[in-house]
Simulated assay, not measured.
Amino acid sequence: MQAVIVEAKRTPFGDKNGMLKDYRPEQLAAPLIQHLSQVMTPDDVILGNVVGGGGNMARLSSLEAGLSLHIPGMTIDRQCASGLEAIRTACVMVQSGEGSMYIAGGTESISKSPMKERARFSPEWIGDPHMGEAAELTASRFSVTRKEQDDYALLSWERSIEAFKQGTYSEEIVPIDGLNTDEAAAKIRPITRLIKRAKPVFLKEGTVTVTNSCKEADGAAAVVVMERAEAEAKGLKPKLRYVRSAVTAMHPHFPAASPIDAIKKLLHKEQIKAQDVALFEINEAFALKVALIARTLGIPYDRINRRGGALCLGHPYSASGAAMMVRLFYEAHALPKGSYVVAAIGTGGGVGLAVLCQVLS
Protein backbone atom coordinates (compact mmCIF):
# COMPACT_ATOMS: atom_id res chain seq x y z
CA MET A 1 0.00 0.00 0.00
CA GLN A 2 1.13 3.55 -0.70
CA ALA A 3 0.42 6.58 1.48
CA VAL A 4 -0.25 9.79 -0.42
CA ILE A 5 -1.12 13.38 0.46
CA VAL A 6 -4.22 14.63 -1.33
CA GLU A 7 -4.86 17.95 0.42
CA ALA A 8 -2.95 20.30 2.72
CA LYS A 9 -3.78 23.55 4.48
CA ARG A 10 -2.69 25.79 7.33
CA THR A 11 -4.15 28.69 9.25
CA PRO A 12 -2.63 32.13 9.01
CA PHE A 13 0.17 32.45 11.56
CA GLY A 14 -0.11 35.11 14.25
CA ASP A 15 2.59 36.50 16.52
CA LYS A 16 2.56 35.40 20.16
CA ASN A 17 -0.05 37.62 21.86
CA GLY A 18 -0.98 38.92 18.43
CA MET A 19 -4.00 38.51 16.16
CA LEU A 20 -4.74 34.89 17.19
CA LYS A 21 -4.13 35.34 20.92
CA ASP A 22 -7.77 34.67 21.86
CA TYR A 23 -7.93 31.30 20.10
CA ARG A 24 -7.23 28.09 21.97
CA PRO A 25 -5.25 25.41 20.08
CA GLU A 26 -8.35 23.33 19.36
CA GLN A 27 -10.04 26.44 17.95
CA LEU A 28 -7.10 26.94 15.60
CA ALA A 29 -7.21 23.32 14.46
CA ALA A 30 -11.00 23.08 14.07
CA PRO A 31 -11.36 25.12 10.82
CA LEU A 32 -8.61 23.02 9.23
CA ILE A 33 -10.21 19.76 10.28
CA GLN A 34 -13.60 20.93 9.02
CA HIS A 35 -12.09 21.88 5.66
CA LEU A 36 -9.99 18.74 5.24
CA SER A 37 -12.75 16.36 6.31
CA GLN A 38 -14.73 17.47 3.24
CA VAL A 39 -12.43 15.15 1.28
CA MET A 40 -13.65 12.15 3.26
CA THR A 41 -14.43 11.23 6.85
CA PRO A 42 -11.10 10.30 8.46
CA ASP A 43 -10.36 7.10 10.32
CA ASP A 44 -8.52 9.19 12.87
CA VAL A 45 -7.14 12.67 13.54
CA ILE A 46 -3.49 12.81 14.60
CA LEU A 47 -2.12 16.14 15.82
CA GLY A 48 1.08 17.35 17.39
CA ASN A 49 0.85 19.72 20.34
CA VAL A 50 3.57 20.91 22.71
CA VAL A 51 2.37 23.66 25.07
CA GLY A 52 -1.38 23.08 25.21
CA GLY A 53 -1.30 21.96 28.83
CA GLY A 54 -2.15 18.29 28.38
CA GLY A 55 -5.17 16.23 27.38
CA ASN A 56 -5.81 14.69 23.97
CA MET A 57 -5.68 17.81 21.78
CA ALA A 58 -6.46 15.86 18.60
CA ARG A 59 -9.66 14.42 20.09
CA LEU A 60 -10.66 17.82 21.48
CA SER A 61 -9.98 19.51 18.14
CA SER A 62 -11.96 16.84 16.26
CA LEU A 63 -14.95 17.41 18.52
CA GLU A 64 -14.54 21.19 18.27
CA ALA A 65 -14.69 20.78 14.49
CA GLY A 66 -17.97 18.90 14.70
CA LEU A 67 -16.65 15.56 13.45
CA SER A 68 -18.32 12.30 14.41
CA LEU A 69 -18.10 11.30 18.05
CA HIS A 70 -16.70 7.98 16.82
CA ILE A 71 -13.44 9.46 15.47
CA PRO A 72 -10.89 8.90 18.27
CA GLY A 73 -7.97 11.37 17.90
CA MET A 74 -4.33 10.94 18.96
CA THR A 75 -1.92 13.63 20.17
CA ILE A 76 1.85 13.47 19.69
CA ASP A 77 4.60 15.42 21.43
CA ARG A 78 8.00 15.29 19.78
CA GLN A 79 8.49 18.97 20.54
CA CYS A 80 8.99 21.06 17.38
CA ALA A 81 8.84 17.91 15.22
CA SER A 82 5.39 16.97 16.53
CA GLY A 83 3.35 18.07 13.50
CA LEU A 84 5.71 16.38 11.05
CA GLU A 85 5.77 13.27 13.26
CA ALA A 86 1.96 13.22 13.16
CA ILE A 87 2.06 13.18 9.35
CA ARG A 88 4.77 10.51 9.36
CA THR A 89 2.71 8.38 11.73
CA ALA A 90 -0.39 8.71 9.56
CA CYS A 91 1.59 7.64 6.50
CA VAL A 92 2.96 4.58 8.26
CA MET A 93 -0.55 3.69 9.49
CA VAL A 94 -1.87 3.82 5.93
CA GLN A 95 1.03 1.74 4.61
CA SER A 96 0.42 -0.90 7.27
CA GLY A 97 -3.27 -1.13 6.40
CA GLU A 98 -4.49 0.16 9.76
CA GLY A 99 -6.61 2.81 8.05
CA SER A 100 -7.18 4.46 4.69
CA MET A 101 -7.60 8.16 5.53
CA TYR A 102 -6.15 10.40 8.24
CA ILE A 103 -6.04 14.09 9.01
CA ALA A 104 -2.60 14.79 10.46
CA GLY A 105 -0.66 17.89 11.49
CA GLY A 106 -0.11 20.16 14.46
CA THR A 107 -1.70 23.02 16.37
CA GLU A 108 -0.19 25.48 18.81
CA SER A 109 -1.36 28.50 20.76
CA ILE A 110 1.68 29.81 22.55
CA SER A 111 -0.39 32.84 23.58
CA LYS A 112 -2.90 30.63 25.43
CA SER A 113 -0.43 28.15 26.88
CA PRO A 114 -0.90 27.52 30.62
CA MET A 115 2.76 26.54 30.90
CA LYS A 116 4.71 29.24 32.73
CA GLU A 117 8.08 27.68 31.98
CA ARG A 118 9.29 25.54 29.11
CA ALA A 119 9.60 21.80 29.56
CA ARG A 120 12.98 20.28 30.27
CA PHE A 121 14.82 18.91 27.27
CA SER A 122 17.70 17.25 29.12
CA PRO A 123 18.61 16.26 32.73
CA GLU A 124 20.81 18.46 34.88
CA TRP A 125 23.82 16.17 34.67
CA ILE A 126 23.91 16.66 30.89
CA GLY A 127 22.81 20.29 30.93
CA ASP A 128 19.65 21.88 29.59
CA PRO A 129 20.44 25.14 27.82
CA HIS A 130 17.82 27.54 26.49
CA MET A 131 17.30 27.02 22.75
CA GLY A 132 19.01 30.32 22.01
CA GLU A 133 21.99 29.37 24.14
CA ALA A 134 22.04 25.96 22.42
CA ALA A 135 22.10 27.76 19.07
CA GLU A 136 25.16 29.69 20.19
CA LEU A 137 26.79 26.45 21.35
CA THR A 138 26.07 24.95 17.92
CA ALA A 139 27.44 27.98 16.09
CA SER A 140 30.64 27.75 18.11
CA ARG A 141 30.96 23.96 17.81
CA PHE A 142 30.52 23.98 14.02
CA SER A 143 32.13 27.38 13.30
CA VAL A 144 29.05 29.02 11.77
CA THR A 145 29.74 32.75 11.54
CA ARG A 146 27.41 35.68 12.14
CA LYS A 147 27.79 36.57 8.46
CA GLU A 148 26.65 33.10 7.33
CA GLN A 149 23.59 33.37 9.54
CA ASP A 150 22.74 36.90 8.47
CA ASP A 151 23.24 36.13 4.78
CA TYR A 152 20.75 33.28 4.96
CA ALA A 153 18.34 35.29 7.13
CA LEU A 154 18.29 38.09 4.58
CA LEU A 155 17.58 35.64 1.77
CA SER A 156 14.76 33.99 3.70
CA TRP A 157 13.16 37.32 4.63
CA GLU A 158 13.34 38.47 1.01
CA ARG A 159 11.68 35.25 -0.13
CA SER A 160 8.86 35.66 2.39
CA ILE A 161 8.35 39.29 1.40
CA GLU A 162 8.16 38.26 -2.25
CA ALA A 163 5.67 35.52 -1.36
CA PHE A 164 3.46 38.12 0.31
CA LYS A 165 3.71 40.42 -2.71
CA GLN A 166 2.83 37.59 -5.12
CA GLY A 167 0.08 36.19 -2.88
CA THR A 168 1.62 32.73 -2.98
CA TYR A 169 0.95 32.01 0.70
CA SER A 170 -2.79 32.49 0.17
CA GLU A 171 -3.26 29.08 -1.46
CA GLU A 172 -1.99 27.43 1.73
CA ILE A 173 -4.41 29.18 4.10
CA VAL A 174 -7.82 28.35 5.53
CA PRO A 175 -9.12 31.58 7.12
CA ILE A 176 -10.10 31.87 10.76
CA ASP A 177 -13.08 34.21 11.28
CA GLY A 178 -12.08 36.25 8.25
CA LEU A 179 -8.37 36.33 9.12
CA ASN A 180 -6.68 35.10 5.96
CA THR A 181 -3.18 36.60 6.00
CA ASP A 182 -0.18 35.95 8.21
CA GLU A 183 0.35 38.67 10.78
CA ALA A 184 3.90 39.16 9.50
CA ALA A 185 2.49 40.61 6.26
CA ALA A 186 1.52 43.80 8.06
CA LYS A 187 4.83 44.14 9.91
CA ILE A 188 7.41 43.90 7.15
CA ARG A 189 10.16 46.46 7.65
CA PRO A 190 13.37 47.28 5.77
CA ILE A 191 15.08 44.09 6.87
CA THR A 192 18.53 44.64 5.33
CA ARG A 193 19.38 47.46 7.71
CA LEU A 194 17.85 45.67 10.71
CA ILE A 195 19.82 42.49 10.12
CA LYS A 196 23.12 44.34 10.00
CA ARG A 197 22.37 46.40 13.13
CA ALA A 198 20.84 43.67 15.31
CA LYS A 199 22.71 42.87 18.54
CA PRO A 200 23.34 39.32 19.84
CA VAL A 201 20.54 38.20 22.15
CA PHE A 202 21.97 35.34 24.20
CA LEU A 203 25.71 36.00 24.43
CA LYS A 204 27.40 39.40 24.42
CA GLU A 205 29.87 38.27 21.78
CA GLY A 206 27.47 35.82 20.18
CA THR A 207 26.06 35.44 16.68
CA VAL A 208 22.33 34.80 17.24
CA THR A 209 20.09 37.88 16.94
CA VAL A 210 16.39 38.68 16.76
CA THR A 211 16.62 38.92 12.97
CA ASN A 212 18.41 35.63 12.31
CA SER A 213 16.20 33.65 14.70
CA CYS A 214 12.46 33.03 14.60
CA LYS A 215 9.70 34.54 16.70
CA GLU A 216 7.10 32.50 18.57
CA ALA A 217 3.75 32.21 16.85
CA ASP A 218 0.24 30.76 17.03
CA GLY A 219 -1.20 28.61 14.26
CA ALA A 220 -2.08 25.19 12.92
CA ALA A 221 -1.34 23.11 9.83
CA ALA A 222 -2.55 19.72 8.60
CA VAL A 223 -2.76 17.40 5.59
CA VAL A 224 -4.98 14.58 4.37
CA VAL A 225 -3.13 11.26 4.12
CA MET A 226 -4.85 8.50 2.15
CA GLU A 227 -4.18 5.09 0.65
CA ARG A 228 -3.31 5.78 -2.98
CA ALA A 229 -5.63 3.31 -4.68
CA GLU A 230 -8.61 4.49 -2.64
CA ALA A 231 -7.81 8.14 -3.30
CA GLU A 232 -7.60 7.56 -7.04
CA ALA A 233 -10.77 5.45 -7.02
CA LYS A 234 -12.59 8.45 -5.53
CA GLY A 235 -11.32 10.69 -8.31
CA LEU A 236 -8.77 12.49 -6.13
CA LYS A 237 -5.38 13.48 -7.49
CA PRO A 238 -2.59 12.83 -4.97
CA LYS A 239 0.27 15.33 -5.11
CA LEU A 240 2.88 13.64 -2.92
CA ARG A 241 3.70 10.01 -2.16
CA TYR A 242 5.29 9.22 1.18
CA VAL A 243 8.52 7.32 0.52
CA ARG A 244 10.21 6.92 3.91
CA SER A 245 11.46 8.80 6.95
CA ALA A 246 14.26 8.81 9.49
CA VAL A 247 14.62 10.03 13.05
CA THR A 248 17.93 10.44 14.89
CA ALA A 249 19.26 12.10 18.00
CA MET A 250 22.47 13.77 19.18
CA HIS A 251 23.80 15.68 22.17
CA PRO A 252 21.02 17.94 23.53
CA HIS A 253 23.36 20.96 23.45
CA PHE A 254 23.34 21.05 19.63
CA PRO A 255 19.71 20.72 18.49
CA ALA A 256 20.20 22.99 15.46
CA ALA A 257 22.50 20.35 13.99
CA SER A 258 20.16 17.43 14.64
CA PRO A 259 18.45 17.32 11.20
CA ILE A 260 21.81 16.60 9.54
CA ASP A 261 22.04 12.99 10.68
CA ALA A 262 18.32 12.46 10.05
CA ILE A 263 18.68 13.63 6.44
CA LYS A 264 21.84 11.55 5.96
CA LYS A 265 20.12 8.44 7.34
CA LEU A 266 17.07 9.05 5.17
CA LEU A 267 19.06 9.46 1.97
CA HIS A 268 21.20 6.42 2.78
CA LYS A 269 18.13 4.25 3.37
CA GLU A 270 16.71 5.28 0.00
CA GLN A 271 20.14 5.10 -1.70
CA ILE A 272 19.94 8.62 -3.12
CA LYS A 273 22.09 11.73 -2.66
CA ALA A 274 21.24 15.24 -1.52
CA GLN A 275 21.62 16.48 -5.10
CA ASP A 276 18.85 14.06 -6.13
CA VAL A 277 16.37 16.01 -3.99
CA ALA A 278 14.62 18.83 -5.85
CA LEU A 279 13.50 20.77 -2.79
CA PHE A 280 14.10 20.80 0.95
CA GLU A 281 11.93 22.45 3.58
CA ILE A 282 14.02 22.95 6.71
CA ASN A 283 12.60 24.62 9.79
CA GLU A 284 14.04 28.09 10.37
CA ALA A 285 14.03 28.20 14.14
CA PHE A 286 17.45 29.77 13.57
CA ALA A 287 19.18 30.82 10.35
CA LEU A 288 22.12 28.95 11.87
CA LYS A 289 20.32 25.65 11.28
CA VAL A 290 19.78 26.13 7.55
CA ALA A 291 23.25 27.59 6.99
CA LEU A 292 24.88 24.63 8.76
CA ILE A 293 22.78 21.98 7.00
CA ALA A 294 23.30 23.55 3.58
CA ARG A 295 27.07 23.74 4.09
CA THR A 296 27.43 20.24 5.58
CA LEU A 297 25.32 18.44 2.98
CA GLY A 298 26.27 20.60 0.02
CA ILE A 299 22.73 21.82 -0.68
CA PRO A 300 22.47 25.12 -2.59
CA TYR A 301 20.05 27.68 -1.17
CA ASP A 302 17.98 27.63 -4.35
CA ARG A 303 16.76 24.17 -3.27
CA ILE A 304 15.88 25.17 0.31
CA ASN A 305 12.80 27.05 1.57
CA ARG A 306 11.96 28.84 -1.66
CA ARG A 307 9.01 30.64 -0.06
CA GLY A 308 10.90 31.67 3.06
CA GLY A 309 9.83 30.36 6.42
CA ALA A 310 9.73 30.82 10.18
CA LEU A 311 12.26 33.66 10.32
CA CYS A 312 9.53 35.90 8.95
CA LEU A 313 6.28 33.99 9.53
CA GLY A 314 7.04 32.72 13.04
CA HIS A 315 7.36 29.29 14.63
CA PRO A 316 4.19 27.78 16.14
CA TYR A 317 6.15 24.84 17.55
CA SER A 318 4.22 21.66 16.72
CA ALA A 319 2.54 23.23 13.67
CA SER A 320 5.83 24.16 11.99
CA GLY A 321 6.75 20.71 10.70
CA ALA A 322 3.25 20.23 9.30
CA ALA A 323 3.40 23.68 7.69
CA MET A 324 6.58 22.64 5.86
CA MET A 325 4.71 19.67 4.38
CA VAL A 326 1.87 21.99 3.38
CA ARG A 327 4.40 24.17 1.59
CA LEU A 328 5.93 21.19 -0.23
CA PHE A 329 2.43 20.14 -1.30
CA TYR A 330 1.96 23.45 -3.14
CA GLU A 331 5.54 23.66 -4.38
CA ALA A 332 4.94 20.28 -6.07
CA HIS A 333 2.95 22.12 -8.76
CA ALA A 334 6.20 23.53 -10.13
CA LEU A 335 8.28 20.35 -9.91
CA PRO A 336 8.59 17.55 -12.48
CA LYS A 337 6.71 14.34 -11.76
CA GLY A 338 8.95 11.93 -9.86
CA SER A 339 10.92 14.66 -8.08
CA TYR A 340 11.98 14.01 -4.51
CA VAL A 341 11.24 16.51 -1.74
CA VAL A 342 12.31 16.46 1.92
CA ALA A 343 10.94 18.09 5.06
CA ALA A 344 13.37 18.16 7.99
CA ILE A 345 13.25 19.63 11.47
CA GLY A 346 15.26 19.57 14.71
CA THR A 347 13.92 19.80 18.24
CA GLY A 348 14.82 20.75 21.75
CA GLY A 349 16.67 17.78 23.23
CA GLY A 350 18.62 17.12 20.04
CA VAL A 351 16.15 15.03 18.00
CA GLY A 352 16.11 15.30 14.20
CA LEU A 353 13.33 14.12 11.89
CA ALA A 354 13.31 13.99 8.09
CA VAL A 355 10.55 12.85 5.72
CA LEU A 356 11.01 12.03 2.04
CA CYS A 357 8.18 12.28 -0.47
CA GLN A 358 7.91 11.99 -4.25
CA VAL A 359 5.93 14.28 -6.54
CA LEU A 360 3.08 12.45 -8.30
CA SER A 361 1.42 15.25 -10.26
Rank of each mutant, 00 (worst) to 15 (best):
F329H: 11
S156H: 08
T75N: 03
A185E: 12
Q2Y: 11
M324I: 09
L69D: 15
G235F: 15
S122I: 12
T145E: 10
E183Q: 15
V92M: 13
T107A: 15
P42D: 02
K165A: 15
G53D: 08
Y301W: 13
I263L: 08
L84H: 07
G66C: 07
E232G: 07
G309C: 07
T248E: 11
K165T: 15
A86M: 02
A246T: 03
H70D: 14
R159N: 04
G219L: 06
K112A: 13
V45F: 02
K204P: 00
G349Y: 00
K147Y: 09
Q79I: 09
G105E: 01
Q95T: 00
S213V: 01
A86F: 00
K116T: 14
D218C: 01
V326R: 03
G132F: 12
A231K: 00
R228V: 04
C312E: 02
F280V: 04
G83C: 09
G314V: 01
V243E: 13
W157G: 05
E171M: 09
E232C: 13
K269L: 14
G167Q: 09
M324E: 02
P72M: 06
E158Y: 09
I176C: 07
F280D: 01
A322V: 01
F13R: 02
A257V: 03
A58G: 11
A135N: 08
G66M: 04
P25G: 07
